[in-house]
Design a protein around this nucleic acid. Sequence first.
DNA 1: GCACACTAGATCGTATACGATTTGATGTAC
DNA 2: GTACATCAAATCGTATACGATCTAGTGTGC
Lengths: 219, 219
Amino acid sequence: MTTSKSEVAYALVSERIVNGAYSPGYRLVLGTIADELGCSVVPVREAIRRLEAEGLVHFTRNVGATVAQVDSTLYLHTMQTLAVIEPAATALAASAMDEAWLAKAQDLNDQMRQCLEAFDPVAFTELNNEFHQQLYSQCPNPHILDLVQRGWRRLAAMRASSFTHIPHRARQSVEEHQHLLELIRVHASPREIEEAARAHRTNTLNAYLAQANMDPSVI
Amino acid sequence: MTTSKSEVAYALVSERIVNGAYSPGYRLVLGTIADELGCSVVPVREAIRRLEAEGLVHFTRNVGATVAQVDSTLYLHTMQTLAVIEPAATALAASAMDEAWLAKAQDLNDQMRQCLEAFDPVAFTELNNEFHQQLYSQCPNPHILDLVQRGWRRLAAMRASSFTHIPHRARQSVEEHQHLLELIRVHASPREIEEAARAHRTNTLNAYLAQANMDPSVI
DNA sequence: GCACACTAGATCGTATACGATTTGATGTAC
DNA sequence: GTACATCAAATCGTATACGATCTAGTGTGC
């Protein structure tokens, strides 16, 4: 056995939460998952407590675990956290962004632009995830990288439950990506890159707030 | 029983790592800790895996856990992470900083100043921790708050192993705290507060780099 | 003397079992 | 009909046990 059962359990439950198979509020019963995996409850329990630490599940002693409920406040808090960390990760990664990197990022954004013409929001969302992953992928600080990845996983879990959709924001998003790529191409300072990345995330957050008719002060 | 045994185990091991009783590299043997706590290995194992997720312990399958080794790179990565998150947390907390809050923060910084006169580095460090905790304590975003607290716990664990000491930086630190408090007192914008807090953290980081004769580019 | 195979002890990983706790339903008093 | 006590089913928390795996030490061939 090369991977432990608790790892398998973690991967399974994690994947199902992130892709939406387990919706927010879904009750995670240890015995049920253990039966499905053909193992005992101990490794399942361990996996679930790890997911709790990540914020993907809510856990109550002697009661059990459920997939974390998503409300607008939680969504905004997650967006806000990413708005802090992703720009920093991007700026730190800047020095590692070479021509090959730029070409791939540019290609992803070009594909996103095509999705706009083709009215394909599903592919657009997928490409957007990839683009952002590309942005921070070269971050040399593993702690910061880990935080960004966890944040995006949470965001993915929330979006899988079709909680958000801001269609009219898509086109502006592509342009902001492009602006960011130009800054990287001309070797702008890390600070400039960070600011541009933060502006991008803040704009997305504000677009959501506006759509939901929420006051920016709620966060 | 009001708290579970895994919570007790987590609290015990965590405390010992943070206060330095368990030094980096210390071998955490499940059975030994279980015996000491008078419980079985299962809850201890759970506690240790949680500490692993926090980055305080290093864990290898089928081999066991050790307290995370601290090297300068790890230390710098942790400092860098805090340099991103703590200023954001402070800026977000700004609106909740009232007169009572200011009075307490000012008092802490005044005590730090007195420690300088009295040449009491131990008390100074303790007060510094309290001051920073006060800075981000009112942060309304629980995710960001959690990240800052974890970062400081890691830093505390590293410092407990007397890895760092930058005496000549102390006085400047107090002045930077004071500057930050003035900005808060006059209700400066969140952005200004964030920038000042970040400058403070960046200066601390650079002071360490200079003392260690390291090039800032190492990070 | 060095490299490699082997063995024994230590330690981990997880199955099983059972007591503890919670929850929701049922029954009873008012 | 409402409030509260009671009880049973579901589920969790952890002790115990044992097989699996790693590590270090020993021995053997060269």
